[in-house]
């Protein structure tokens, strides 16, 4: 369900992407960030030696179109965003076909639920003598 502000933002973003394509820029990568409640996606383009960014902010469950029709090299990185951040990209299938409840959903989000209750590393067993070791032999 996208409200009007988001719709306008998506139209403006799509126009910028198309302008990049007409200018002949090269798509480098996109970075998805989790601002709690919405996602920010930063697209990086490389054009005539300069790096240019195109930003988009959408709420979590708003579907936005993929840019692979203009830039085919964006395929893998959009699918990774679908897997790791739970973004809804129209036209990008997730890599991991997870069954319900099989793993962490959208692990890169700030409030992702970790199925392992304690986040601390497991303590290794101690060896019986607790004295500092003797001076090591010369390696040479």
């Amino acid at each position: 369900m996208a409200d009007e502000a988001t719709e306008n933002a998506m139209k403006a973003w799509r126009a910028e992407i198309e302008a990049m394509h007409t200018a002949g820029a090269r798509f480098v990568v996109l970075a998805g960030l989790d601002l709690i409640g919405k996602l920010e996606v930063i697209y990086l383009f490389h054009h005539e030696g300069q790096l240019k960014e195109v930003k988009l902010q959408v709420p979590y469950d708003v579907e936005f179109p993929s840019i692979t029709d203009l830039f085919p090299s964006a395929n893998f990185v959009e699918r990774e965003m679908v897997d790791l951040l739970g973004a809804k990209v129209k036209g990008a299938a997730p890599f991991l076909e997870l069954t319900e409840g099989a793993g962490i959903v959208a692990p890169l989000r700030k409030n992702a639920v970790n199925p392992r209750p304690s986040g601390k590393p497991a303590t290794p067993p101690t060896t019986p003598p607790a004295t500092p070791p003797a001076a090591p032999k010369e390696a040479k």
Partner: peptide
Amino acid sequence: MLEHYADASYAPTIDTYH
């Protein structure tokens, strides 16, 4: 830091310095 490679052991070693 010594130039001594880690020794092999049968269990993860914890050394205590007092």
